[in-house]
Design a binder for these strands. Structure first.
Lengths: 352, 352
DNA sequence: CTGAAAGCGCTAACAT
DNA sequence: ATGTTAGCGCTTTCAG
């Protein structure tokens, strides 16, 4: 059942039916009513393919994600899905498998069947992204590319809070277990840590890179122990959770022997053992905002262009649970006498 | 850049280009090579909309899920996404918001832009599903609809194992905290429990329905306590995890005072406190299999029809962790004298 | 406000 | 093996 079936039934031209459906106000109210009625009687459903062939719009957006099983992205998907649906767009889910090449390929392909792309935690270079953005509107999440609209979850403030929290508990030597080397977020987090550490006069080390997974958290835990720190800040909750298991395995009691800080507050962070002190990120909101920004780019209905912002920054906050605690007094004394003039400079330690 | 640009450049008809791209073996090898070359020089990309307009195929399938944030579905999404990609299909993700109406609407719409639909944990009636399957090929997951291809995760065997496990630990009174009343899976689980209970001579009660969420697990925990059972089997891990938190809150030590069994073995089941004894389900595999079954329906390339199976059953197994343990001897004696002739019949208890 | 007509980019008979 | 010719279902000028 096509548009011409409806046209025939009503006794008008197909173009009138088309208008009645797409530009309701450019057609007489009475005829429109008759058309709508006939359409529903015939249970007519417009063919999206035909529509996009002429209009150029596909009413769907693509969400590119490095790994769909990473719980961090669940809420992102949820947010994007919800907002897309609210705006009558379809959501295509693409997994880039943590690979820049796959990402580029998906991006190019998506440009043929989607109106826009949301790119989460992109692994591509700025150059490639700029290039791709000529093909199709893009919004990046947790990434800062010149000229590209982005939404970033800003962990800076909360990370500073976390460092103060640790310092106030007596920690003087802290490790940052970093994420993938291609991760813009990880670099930012480390910078925030360094800054806070310098200000607080605590020693901090970066170790990594690690894959942002539970599995890698196990290795990261061992690295932290090897460094001899009393507190470890992990790139994300996934790693922190893996580390928690590893610490338990090695008889290292959290938080007595080691304080642990995660990041993101994903599903599970509140019920692991012990519940994780972490940086709570508005992930779902990020998905919604990104979707809105994307749609704003191709929905400028002559509206007084609200000068759609190019960069939306979402704040995080520190959630203190049970994985952080005070440094035992005995240990603190021992450490202080052993390292009377702890360097104030942040150090970078590589792990093979 | 369209197909005719390529045709002009090579000096052939558009149809030849089309063939070279779609039916490579129906065109001379030399010309095909020249066409492919020209295409890549012009960086030609076929227009999927135009293609589907004529061919009728859209190269995309839709995955309908009651709630994208439910971790159970993460792996399902992963499996479907992966397999779709491998078969060069796009995956549209649709959230039905646990509602039969939304599901029906999405299903109808999807039939206009997708080649097929995977329907996970459908909330619709058999009748509606049969109706919908006339519009578009459907594969259902965890559901049994006459004539519709399905993949079910069969928890029956593992549930029996779990009951044996509990019985061997001395439990004689067990609660099943059920899922949504529309959940086919929940009904099946209860049946398996009843059967095993009868065989083992243990008393069992069903309580519910509950929403399959952490939040509802809290309420379910209280219901289990109220029943005075020594072991609770939850519809899924989400509920079990919520219950674990509630038990801790109320000072009920798991597994000393209460044994807890979950279902699915989702992300988190292994690191909650205590780690959950649960029925491990091959969820990702289910997503892959469902995708395969769906694609098989419209990819019958004249192949000797392998009589594609209508029902694929995936086994689960019992994973014993730390949330189940023996009934304390004192308590067992007390119970036995208090209820010397415990009923062998399963009882259903409603909770307001 | 409505109709006629010309495509959008591609595929699929049907010819050759 | 390739070219010709119709469309697929819809939108969109351009005329009335």
């Amino acid at each position: 059942v096509t548009i011409s079936d409806v046209a025939r039934k009503v006794g008008v031209a197909t173009s009138t039916v088309s208008r009645a459906l797409s530009n309701p106000d450019r057609v007489n109210e009475v005829t429109r009513k008759r058309i709508l009625e006939a359409a529903s009687e015939l249970s007519y459903r417009p063919n999206p393919q035909a529509r996009s062939l002429t209009s150029g719009r596909t009413s769907s957006i693509a969400l590119l994600i490095p790994d769909v099983t990473n719980p961090f992205f669940f809420d992102l998907i949820k947010g994007a899905q919800r907002q897309a649906r609210a705006r009558e767009y379809r959501l295509l889910l693409l997994d880039t498998e943590e690979s820049a090449e796959v990402e580029a390929a998906q991006l190019a392909e998506a440009s043929t069947y989607a109106d826009g792309v949301i790119l989460a935690a992109s692994r591509s270079s700025d150059r490639d992204l700029a290039e791709a953005s000529k093909l199709i509107p893009i919004v990046v999440i947790n990434r800062d590319v010149p000229k590209l609209p982005s939404v970033v979850i800003d962990t800076g403030m909360a990370m500073t809070q976390a460092m103060h929290h640790l310092a106030s508990l007596g920690h003087r030597s802290i490790a940052y277990l970093g994420g993938p080397s291609t991760s813009w977020s990880s670099r930012r987090r480390w910078r925030a840590i360094q800054r806070a550490a310098a200000q607080l006069g605590v020693e901090c080390h970066q170790v990594g890179p690690f894959s942002p997974t539970v599995q890698a958290g196990v290795a990261a835990a061992d690295a932290a122990v090897h460094l001899g720190v009393t507190a470890s800040v992990f790139f994300n909750d996934l790693m922190a959770i893996g580390a928690l298991q590893r610490f338990a395995e090695r008889g290292i009691v959290v938080p007595r022997d080691m304080s642990v800080v995660g990041c993101d507050d994903i599903f599970g962070a509140d019920f692991c053992d012990p519940p994780l002190t972490t940086l709570t990120a508005p992930i779902q909101r990020a998905g919604e905002v990104a979707t809105d920004m994307l749609l704003a780019q191709f929905q400028n209905f002559g509206v007084e262009a609200p000068a759609s912002r190019l960069r939306e920054s979402l704040p995080t906050f520190l959630t203190i649970r049970s994985s952080t605690g005070p440094v035992p007094v005995g240990e603190r004394l021992a450490r202080e006498s052993a390292a009377p003039a702890a360097s104030k400079d942040a150090k970078r330690v590589a792990v093979p």
